[in-house]
Design a protein around this nucleic acid. Structure first.
Lengths: 142, 142
DNA sequence: CCGTATCCCGTCAGATACTG
DNA sequence: CAGTATCTGACGGGATACGG
């Protein structure tokens, strides 16, 4: 049957569909810290836990661990433990991790480059909303 | 002072910093339906509310409205009302909207292209976790 | 140093029903 | 058609403290 839309051709997989597995991938990227982790590691250099933690200003250890585990599970980064003392754990993007890392970085670059325009748009939108006519305009009391 | 990291050069703006305004942009993109809206509109063709709603399988009207409003506020899309009857409202990406839309699409494309590898990685990760030695290995009872 | 264990709160998102 | 109004629950994320 025809839904009225052509599927985007990738072996019959369509992100727009409710139960499409790619949705999970998107929602992973969508989680609060994922993009920053990917960008931090994008150059391929391994980073230690504490190093990432310092870089991602404001992240708590719990959440950082969650994020890293999730990414490790998807195969975009590896976790390597050096059983030295003190303990040393290094995180590094895999091949596909670097691919998506590059893509994500282009988005953060875009955000930074267009920040001024975005802030201006926000300001205008908010001001316009403030002046808006009350629409249904109350006074429905007797 | 030196934080030990070079700032990524974009007029002194650094995504990694806690209060950097670009964080807000990232978190907008991170919200569940944003990427799909951007990809749906990426080709520049305006779409009606119901059309988007059908395309984004599973989205509820409330959430779709929220998402569209947020994007409109950032200036990445416009909302145009045609006061005909029945009512007709069209959403369309702005110039900067199409820019970021293209970037996001490259990510969804990547997701679809690498889906098999990701699913394999997930499977392996989960199996490994299942076999994992109990680490501290219980039996701390008398 | 590298995490885990708790506790807790806010917000986002879903369901459902209704209006201009 | 294009939304709004409510209510509700889940869970992501934060703070804090502790363990290997």
């Amino acid at each position: 049957m025809d839904t009225g839309f052509d599927l985007r051709q990738h072996g019959g997989v369509d992100v727009f569909l409710r139960d499409c597995p790619t949705r999970a991938v998107l929602e992973l990227i969508a989680s609060k810290w994922t993009m920053l982790v990917l960008v931090a590691l994008e150059d391929g250099r391994p980073m230690r836990f504490a190093e990432l933690r310092r870089r991602l200003d404001g992240v708590t250890p719990k959440v950082l661990t969650q994020t890293l585990r999730a990414l490790e599970r998807e195969g975009v980064l590896t976790r390597r433990v050096h059983p030295t003392v003190p303990l040393r754990v290094e995180y590094q993007l895999t091949k596909i991790g670097q691919e998506v890392g590059g893509l994500v970085q282009s988005i953060t670059d875009w955000s930074q480059a267009n920040l001024a325009a975005i802030q201006a748009a926000r300001k205008e939108f908010d001001e316009r909303a403030a002046c808006e006519p009350p629409e249904v305009t109350a006074q429905e009391r007797a």
